[in-house]
């Protein structure tokens, strides 16, 4: 009896995120109202505060906000199995959609109209990447030091592996704060105003794009 109940419970977790997943158009942020509706209001598994907590936490660990927050919520509700159920639930629909688009692309890629469309789309992708850079820069570049790290980072990337650069960036952050504190500078690491991560899109460090 108990085993049966658990499978049913895990399936409920899976199904909740399976339904929410296709709305992740435009990133994890779009998912939050649906998570609140499904997990807080309908299933009553967690409270609104829990969700705010989870979204903030999902931001500080690497990975997509949508996947991380689903996995965190699954873990809070049903332990490791719950985490796995939620992760598969949130990933499966988009996996199928993306794969179908990919397969269709390979079937019609030699079509001259599609080739023509992609000449323009590739340029638009560069614009979207620039847009992503501007959005992240708004929260990342807060003073001269962060501007300097960004400016030095670009040419350095032509010579070192991006993964190494990410670690160097993290270490630079630690060292820079220490030096600045020793020199007596005051660094404001906190945002000026307190933001609720579930309502402020800019909180998402570009996660939505």
């Amino acid at each position: 009896m108990k085993v049966k109940f658990q499978w049913k419970f895990l399936f409920q977790i899976f199904w909740s995120f399976f339904k929410i997943s296709p709305v992740t158009f435009g990133g994890g942020f779009a998912m939050i109202p649906f998570i609140i509706k499904e997990i807080v209001e309908k299933r009553k598994w967690l409270t609104h505060e829990d969700i705010t907590d989870v979204i903030a936490l999902s931001q500080t660990i690497p990975g997509a906000v949508a996947v991380n927050s689903a996995t965190f919520i699954g873990h809070r509700i049903g332990g490791i199995r719950g985490a796995i159920a939620a992760m598969i639930g949130v990933s499966l629909p988009t996996f199928v959609i993306v794969l179908s688009l990919g397969i269709s692309y390979f079937f019609i890629q030699d079509n001259p109209k599609l080739e023509a469309a992609f000449i323009s789309i590739r340029t638009t992708i560069v614009a979207i990447i620039v847009y992503a850079a501007i959005r992240i820069a708004k929260t990342a570049i807060t003073d001269k030091t962060t501007f300097f790290i960004m400016a030095v980072g670009v040419p350095i990337l032509f010579f070192i592996h991006p993964v190494v650069a990410i670690f160097l960036g993290a270490i630079t952050g630690l060292v820079a704060v220490k030096i600045k504190k020793r020199l007596g500078y005051n660094i404001d690491l906190h945002k000026k105003k307190k933001v609720d991560p579930t309502t402020d899109p800019d909180y998402f460090m570009g996660a939505g794009i």
Binding site: I136, M150, V152, G153, A165, I166, G169, A170, G173, A176
Partner: peptide, 12 residues
Amino acid sequence: YGLKPLVTSLII
């Protein structure tokens, strides 16, 4: 503090 600017460099 250091990671975010570097993430910006990565996108640029």
